[in-house]
Design a binder for these strands. Structure first.
Lengths: 148, 148
DNA sequence: TATAACTAGGACCATTTTAGTACTATTTAA
DNA sequence: TTAAATAGTACTAAAATGGTCCTAGTTATA
């Protein structure tokens, strides 16, 4: 139940970009600011472009900038970019067990848990991350609504 | 962002036990029912005992039973038993970066995200898992309350 | 038009983590 | 006394992860 280091790096890098999204940021520059090794920074940036979280500008004076405003980039989107879809379980039981039970009985409930977690991560954006600790607005997650 | 297989097994095994908690269940028996290899089942059961989710009875006719009612065993507790504390990030930036920024600025916000996710997983219990898909009651997670 | 400053996209390897197994000791009902 | 259980630890193989490097393509500008 831990995010990968690359995802962690991504949030740091994105935070820096989000604070000044008017100009583009190069991988080398980001490496200097964050202290993360340049090849690793590049790897993260490329993945974020692939997931359409960032937009890249090639050539001299090129670099990266956010694909949309920080308010519209959720933590869930960042995790998705680096680690793929948020799915806590593959299949909640071995195939053999599933056969015995004629279809895994708790798998449906796991889907609901996934949704709950996903919703929680969707509700936090890059804009929230770069603010001093305190949420910008009241958020309610009516869990039961996820089941409808 | 995925649970380990062992955690997955744990939920399956616990579901079986929860459905009939009046008698104890042996590791061999659980292996047969779930289709998971017996040594692996034992490993999972031992970890669950260590985390006080299960209680073991040693000796012949021994086995395992829940340490408390299914309603009081949260998914968060199960994850905690198998994988340790739910902590999405170690430190949101490299030490070097943290020094530059005089203390990582987004770490505090990550703590809040952790709480949000933890809260979501705490709100689902073993009792919910074994019910046919549909929540037993309305749950609201006022996210902002986490910040107080 | 040449060059330097950029990103794109793989491929690669070392390290760590995970899964799964095995072994020995201990406990207890019959 | 024996058989059926759990406790605890150690070990190995496989998979995932982190990190690096290389080559190709793009573009501003001198």
């Amino acid at each position: 139940m831990r995010l990968s280091k690359l995802t962690d790096y991504a949030t740091v890098i994105l935070s820096v970009i989000a604070k000044n999204n008017s100009c583009v940021h190069s991988a080398v520059g980001m490496a200097e600011v964050t202290g993360i090794a340049q090849p690793t920074v590049s790897k993260v940036l490329k993945l974020l472009v692939k997931a359409k979280v960032l937009i890249s500008v090639r050539g001299a004076k090129g670099g990266y900038r956010l694909a949309r405003s920080p308010e519209k980039i959720s933590v869930a989107a960042v995790i998705n970019a680096l680690e793929g879809p948020i799915a806590l379980t593959e299949c909640s039981a071995s195939h053999h067990a599933c056969e015995q039970a004629r279809g895994c009985e708790i798998q449906g409930n796991w889907d609901l848990i996934n949704k709950t977690v996903h919703n929680a991560l969707e509700s936090v954006t890059l804009a929230d991350l770069i603010l001093p600790v305190r949420p910008p607005r009241e958020i309610n997650i009516p869990v039961a609504s996820l089941y409808r």
